[in-house]
Design a protein around this nucleic acid. Structure first.
Length: 883
RNA sequence: GGGCGGGUAGCUCAGUUGGGAGAGCACCGGCCUUACAAGCCGGGGGUCACAGGUUCGAGCCCUGUUCCGCCUACCA
């Protein structure tokens, strides 16, 4: 006989089954298998990553879907992999070098890249091990890395194709420059933060005049690169100055006054300094007016020689300080105002980014966005929850070209070669031997690498073998669903849609499930610097992986951010224990059991048996429907309630008397206990894979693992509404008795006698049929049920539907308590009746509401009135007793 | 500036087509009832942010206000 410990201990169990699943290769999806496919690609974690709570959440949801579909018989693939995470990884290794007293420049590019690979081989797998601990059923055989040979080939293929179609181009534009990372960033990689800054008002003198204009700027140091001042042509203040020249203070450079409708007459003084090399708007102004561009900064954020000898070499912020002091002294500075404005920061290192003119590579995003926009508009891709679609549309409709070149070393080097002789740019899939224009062998490859998100954008097909035409692609593309947080909707999701449609001719996934972000108990974003991170590994250690997974699923409602509270995890840890002990009970009663988990003979079933089977069927339906709609929380809660509130609270209790009944009764009950436990474990398995496997393996069945067993399916024939109603009445009586016992402080051990008066012969019969359950569960000695019951004077009583529940309490009666109890009940009824009366006496309601609603209310009113009358009589006798 | 999400019990949150609000935790009372004290039984607790509107009927639909959070933007 199988004995379970009194408490569930997750640690050892999790290790054992994790290993078992992997050894049995259950996570593998075979592309040659015929059954219909279900596929998900993991949002590839950075190789620098350690599993944080966001990963745990995201991957738990994916694992739930994958396990569920796999059990449903789908050929289910969950594609694993990691991202090389260009800047992030480079920063990590650079930090190491710094600690060793060296740097990447000293190492040189080749050696540095070798060093990063070495780091990746040694530490890049951390997250993989952690995902395994979480129980993720990823097909590890297919593990991919964005810098793998195959995926790099895909990157080249895409780059070259887009270049050939003029969808990738190279040009001089203002980009976001991070002076610390020494690289360009895409617009998305800049985090805007509202910052309390200053607006400096400066006098720009007109040439050969005492007169001057006042301009306003937040970044005075950029004035050193000014090549014009602009005003709005409509601005009356400046009508007299048309065509004049100004002298740039400090450098005494002559600059023109130009007119452009872009200038906002209401901001500052209505005069705008124009710095085409250091501001995106000024750059456009400059292009329109053919202004010179003067770049006054070095890539590291210090001022260069064009800034003038007084400032050359200074850091941009030091320069600002010194310059402002100088301007104040020379009388150029008019005033300094406080200004709250948003300042861009590098999303990797938090350094203030600098708008910077430089030569970069861009993707023509507008062209690629069009079909990607359409795919969501026409429903080829569904975003859940739907409100994210608007955000997606908005961004895609206003998309700007994507800067894809990065001046770092770790990543996919751009497949472009510059001819040292004729200057030709050669973009090619294979490294060229010689220049296509002049046949020179003097070719140097572009040193820039591609934005990390460029390779991520190809993930749904590059991982399946593209550009080769593989079986895996055929079977698993398009993938079924993409599951991710909204923070990378633009970074990743939108770009995958663009690239998928462009290169596969089909969407990369049919559904996108966007989940919320997890915050701490105060609603703060978790971050290491704040020290408020919940470490999933610690939580798993403390409460068990299943408890964490279930908590995350139960929180996954569609809407607000998730404030993770530890007591919820504890609550679901308790649920594990509850399930464990219910199973323990089942196993304790199986020593003579000979059957299997499959119900063979339904004829011998008792009413509670039929009831729990019907309820199981309903739960099955609800779970499947909820998962189908990505309502993880509903699905989780359904299983929870079924197991705890129905199977444990009622069915096991109802089963106890039958287990000590006749051998036939005992056998039948064992059958149902086991069958329902078996099914409940399956329903729960996607959420709690470890404990369900542990218990399931002890059940009498022959399959390999619960994870490859068949997920329960709803069967119309298994629903039995009659039985559900009948059992409801029995439960009501039991609860009613318990209620009186509790409210009147009667000793729980005290056996009561119970009278039930009812005119309904069916209820009478049912009560008498099932008197054993009532006696057992409500601790009743004798029960009488009939239509001619006399109510003893000294008794507690309540009205339950068509039944009058009477408990004689001669010698035990606390009249005071009973009066309070009945008066409380009457008060409630009175309130309800007033409400119903009002409603039913409203002619419009009677006229317009659907018949069934009216009928329901009328019925309710009658039964409440009856109940009220009966209770009032009862109350009278109580009061007599009190006197 | 534009957009999105949220405001429901003391706390954390559900509430799927509109028909008088639920869970977990916390709280109160009673129980070691041989599966489980990480448990069992019973109980109290809500002007569903505010103000209007539509409707016979609104937590749910519409409008406005307010507070919180987030996204986005070329506010020098």
């Amino acid at each position: 006989m199988i004995q379970l410990d009194k408490q569930y201990e997750p640690g050892e169990v999790e290790k054992r089954w994790g290993k078992f699943w992997e050894e049995k290769n259950f996570f593998h999806a075979d592309e040659t298998r015929e059954s219909s496919a279900f596929s998900i690609v993991i949002p590839p974690p950075n190789i620098t990553g350690r599993l944080h709570i966001g990963h745990a959440f995201n991957n738990t949801l994916q694992d739930i879907l994958t396990r569920w579909k796999r059990m449903q018989g789908f050929n289910a693939l969950w594609q694993p992999g990691t991202d090389h995470a260009g800047i992030a990884t480079q920063n990590v290794v650079e930090k190491q070098l710094h600690a060793e007293g060296t740097n990447r420049q000293d190492l040189g590019r080749e050696e540095f890249v070798r060093r990063v690979w070495k780091w990746r081989d040694e530490s890049g797998g951390t997250i993989t091990g952690q995902l395994k601990k979480l129980g993720c059923s990823l097909d590890w055989e297919r593990d991919r890395f964005t810098m793998d040979e195959g995926l790099s080939k895909a990157v080249r293929e895409v780059f070259v194709t887009l270049y050939e179609e003029d969808l990738i181009y190279k040009g001089d534009y203002i980009i976001n420059w991070c002076p610390r990372c020494h690289t360009a960033l895409s617009d998305l990689e800049v985090e805007h933060q509202d910052t309390q800054g200053h607006l400096y008002h400066l006098k720009y003198p007109l040439k050969d005049s005492e007169d001057f204009l006042v301009i306003a700027t937040t970044r005075p140091e950029t004035m050193l690169g000014d090549t014009a001042v602009a005003v709005n042509p409509e601005d009356e203040r400046y009508q007299g100055h048309k065509g004049k020249k100004l002298m740039l203070p400090v450098l005494n450079r002559e600059i023109p006054l130009i007119e452009d409708g872009y200038v906002d007459t209401t901001f500052g003084t209505g005069a705008l300094k124009v710095t085409p090399a250091h501001d995106p708007n000024d750059f456009e102004l400059g292009q329109r007016h053919e202004l010179e561009t003067i770049n006054v900064m070095n890539p590291d954020g210090t001022m260069n020689s064009l800034a003038g000898s007084a400032y050359e070499g200074l850091d941009r912020f030091e320069c600002r300080k010194k310059l402002v002091a100088d301007l104040k002294e020379s009388g150029v500075l008019v005033k300094i105002e406080d200004l709250n404005h948003s300042v861009g920061h590098c999303y990797r290192c938090r350094t203030v980014v600098e708008p910077y003119l430089s030569k970069q590579w861009f993707v023509d995003a507008k062209t690629l966005a069009k079909p990607a926009l359409k795919a969501v508009k026409d429903g080829s891709i569904k975003i859940v929850p739907k409100f994210w679609e608007n955000t997606y549309f908005d961004w895609m409709e206003n998309i700007r070209d994507w800067c894809i070149s990065r001046q770092i070393w770790w990543g996919h080097q751009i497949p472009a070669w510059n001819c040292g002789d004729c200057g030709e740019i050669i973009v090619a899939r294979e490294t060229p031997e010689s220049c296509t224009a002049c046949s020179s062998k003097n070719l140097v490859q572009e040193t820039d690498v591609l934005d990390t998100w460029f390779s991520s954008a190809l993930w749904p097909f590059s991982t399946l073998g593209w550009p080769e035409k593989t079986e895996s692609l055929k079977r698993f593309y398009p993938t079924s669903v993409l599951c991710t947080g909204f923070d990378i909707l633009f970074f990743w999701v939108a770009r995958m849609i663009m690239m998928g449609i462009k290169f596969m001719g089909d969407v990369p996934f049919k559904d996108v499930y966007i989940h919320a972000l997890i915050r701490d108990a105060e609603g703060q974003k978790m971050s290491k610097t704040k020290g408020n991170v919940i470490d999933p590994l610690e939580v798993m250690e403390k409460y068990g992986t299943d408890a964490l997974r279930f908590t995350l699923a139960a929180f996954a409602a569609q809407g607000r951010d998730i404030k993770l509270a530890e007591d919820r995890i504890e609550g679901y840890r308790n649920f594990c224990n509850k399930l464990w002990n219910a199973s323990r009970f089942v196993f304790m009663n199986l020593e003579d059991y000979k059957g299997s988990c499959v119900l063979d003979n339904t004829n011998t079933l008792s009413k509670p048996d039929r009831w729990i089977l019907s309820r199981l069927n309903q739960a099955t339906k609800d779970v499947n429907e909820a998962l189908e709609a990505f309502r993880f929380n509903d699905a989780a809660l359904t299983v929870y309630k079924f197991i705890w509130n129905e199977y444990c609270d009622w069915y096991i209790e109802l089963a106890k008397p039958k287990l000590s009944g006749s051998p036939e009764e005992r056998a039948a009950t064992q059958n149902v206990l086991i069958h329902v436990l078996d099914s409940a474990l399956k329903l729960l398995h996607p959420f709690m894979p470890f404990i369900t496997e542990e218990i399931w393996q002890k059940l009498p069945q022959n399959e390999n693992s619960i994870m490859v067993s068949a997920f329960p399916e709803f069967q119309e024939s298994q629903t039995d509404e009659e039985i559900e109603k009948e059992m409801q009445v029995i439960m009501e009586v039991i609860t009613g008795i318990r209620n009186i016992r509790g409210e009147m402080n009667l000793n729980p051990g005290l056996k009561l006698n119970v009278l039930i008066k009812t005119q309904n012969p069916e209820i009478q019969k049912s009560l008498l049929d099932q008197v054993d359950y009532i006696r057992e569960l409500a601790r009743v000695e004798r029960m009488e049920a009939g239509s001619n019951i006399e109510k003893p004077k000294v008794s507690a009583s309540s009205v339950l539907g068509e039944m009058d529940l009477i408990i004689p309490l001669e010698g035990l009666m606390d009249f005071e308590e009973e009066r309070n109890r009945v008066e409380k009940e009457l008060k409630k009824i009175e309130k309800d009746l007033i409400f119903l009366d009002k409603k039913l006496s409203n002619p419009n309601f009677v006229k317009k509401a659907p018949a069934e609603v009216i009928e329901k209310d009328e019925h309710r009113k009658t039964s409440l009135s009856e109940k009220q009358a009966k209770l009032e009589i009862h109350l009278k006798t109580i009061k007599q007793g009190l006197c």
